[in-house]
Design a binder for these strands. Sequence first.
DNA 1: CGTCTATTTGAATGTACTCAAAAGCGGTGG
DNA 2: CCACCGCTTTTGAGTACATTCAAATAGACG
Lengths: 191, 191
Amino acid sequence: MHELLLKHIAMHISLSPDEEQYFLKAVTLRKLRKKQFLLQEGDISKGTAFVIKGLLKVYSMDRNGVEHIIQFAPPGWWAGDMKSYKTRQPATLFIDAIEDTEILWIRREDLDQLYTQIPVLERFFRILAENSVINYQERLIGTLSLPAAERYYAFCSKYPSLIEQLPQKYVASYIGVTPEFLSKMLKNKTA
Amino acid sequence: MHELLLKHIAMHISLSPDEEQYFLKAVTLRKLRKKQFLLQEGDISKGTAFVIKGLLKVYSMDRNGVEHIIQFAPPGWWAGDMKSYKTRQPATLFIDAIEDTEILWIRREDLDQLYTQIPVLERFFRILAENSVINYQERLIGTLSLPAAERYYAFCSKYPSLIEQLPQKYVASYIGVTPEFLSKMLKNKTA
DNA sequence: CGTCTATTTGAATGTACTCAAAAGCGGTGG
DNA sequence: CCACCGCTTTTGAGTACATTCAAATAGACG
């Protein structure tokens, strides 16, 4: 059940079997039903989730009630509201399950402790955060410099499996257009 | 000359005087003239810069030759092409000096060594990267959900000192509009 | 089936862009 | 110290990409 997490960690750092077990003790399995919230705006995010099954979306809601998806989290990905997590302020993001999902949950206090007990975990999460920076930079450049059609194709080639799995309107939200516009766009390109 | 860097580090972790000196040994002062490049597309980024004086911009160039600024780096900020730095692939970003600038430069090999010699530096750069993630997330949400005028006001309130220092066209690039459009926008709002 | 949600379609609209040209501003050299 | 040059900002007209709103159609699920 936790193999995916250990494998994921082993991609970046190496832990002794003892350390692995110690780390896993801090982690709890949680299940979310489709449409269930992991976090809502106003909550204080008390931990971080590692998805092992299913699919989460992380999004903000604008003042017109429109969702803007900033991340999908399929198995092997982390999801959280980093700002709320770090500052202990109310979240500005929502996280919910697109389908029935299982996550491994780590509370902030536990992770903070682990950092001192297994210092190499600092490296692991440093690398994770740095990779995340790279991703957000590239996405930002896309929204600043590419038309919608090319953002769509970039998404397709970057996340081919998600395209098949996701309702089109979520892809529209992610690339930053209305569902209506994405629909028309796809029709024109095929014709 | 290096006080700003030590002060910046001390905000997040504490180093012994010995560690501080050891860290500073890995750092070299470099000066850039206005308009001089620190990094160009195609270069392989061999290090990271901490600005102590002046102002850098980090940007990408689209196929029409238009700059899209992804970050300004005034004193106290870091600048680099994280992707090229980590993967050792040719950079996709440019970095140049908006005005005469002084930076402290750390090469990747030296920083990698320092991570093992002063492990708490992992924590420092983890925190830095995490804060960076928060920033990019917020900016992404802005570009997805706010009209240009509000992105402009958000920029003004977040970076009041930069507004006075920067040519308007760079602000336009950062918030993701053409200089012409920003000019018209400001005229209308004042009138 | 029937209901709920997602997708499609169309018409009207709006926000921001392109291109071109004029005006403003700052620095430099004569 | 003024004149000129280069760069930034402004202005205007025409255009394009994407949105809004409304309604019809299609799919999925109980």
